[in-house]
Nucleic acid binder design. Structure first.
Lengths: 121, 121
DNA sequence: AATAAATTTAGAATAATTCCATTTATATCA
DNA sequence: TGATATAAATGGAATTATTCTAAATTTATT
């Protein structure tokens, strides 16, 4: 765990769910010498180490999640904000409905976040 | 519905789940003048018309699905083949577990397909 | 047939990500 | 500690997928 890798991790921990370019922008504030390739390198390394998690949305952007433990994500169709969901053990539920083995799954729920609901958009 | 648009649709209907470049390769056999941009144009148009569906996998590739009606997808971690799943009305199940509105969802289950299971890989 | 609208084309442009060779930093151990 | 080995970071080029644009062509409409 190098200083820059720690910085990438810390930035993501502060932000929750972020795209590589967002992480890069923030990390560069602390380390002006930071380079996008290093952010990618470290995101990959942190994923392999299980410290963060990679999320791909159906909208085309990659996100990284500070929380590596299994949970689901919702994305607001209005403002794009990503929220955490706790839907329980879906793997077991899915496995009960199919003959195929459920090794893991990726789920994105499209929602309207509380803020956008309040604004009545 | 132009001839080339119909060709794109037909290719996808023969293939089931395909990436744009795969569709392009097949469509070009029938229409040597076919161009990748036209494939993209037509995939977008066909999606908007509800004739096909767009799937984005967590592995990074875009797929298009000949079947536009709601269902889920499983992808074999071994050979990459995509399979259809029928898990029932998950939206209702998800809605029951969260306060957020469930507008829609994208789900990819990672599995091992029957062929790869048989091979014992 | 003439005109308008939509589609197709070709290629340039963009964006995200990866690759590679070099440099730099970190860890190991005599 | 100092020398060496290992791993990481850098910068930039390369790749890949996708979108954009303007001109040409096709299709539909009156």
């Amino acid at each position: 765990m190098t200083a820059k890798r720690a910085a990438v991790l810390q930035v993501l921990r502060e932000g929750g769910h972020m795209r590589p370019d967002e992480i890069y922008a923030k990390a560069k504030e602390k380390y002006p010498g930071m380079v996008l390739a290093t952010v990618y390198n470290n995101l990959h390394a942190l994923c392999e180490a299980g410290l963060i998690r990679h999320i791909r949305t159906a909208e085309g952007a990659d996100y990284y999640d500070k929380t590596p433990t299994p949970h689901e994500h919702a994305i607001c169709t209005d403002c794009g904000m990503m929220l955490d969901l706790e839907l329980g053990d879906l793997a077991a539920a899915f496995a009960a409905k199919t003959d195929l083995p459920v090794l893991s799954y990726d789920l994105i729920v499209h929602t309207r976040c509380p803020d956008c609901c309040a604004k009545g958009n």
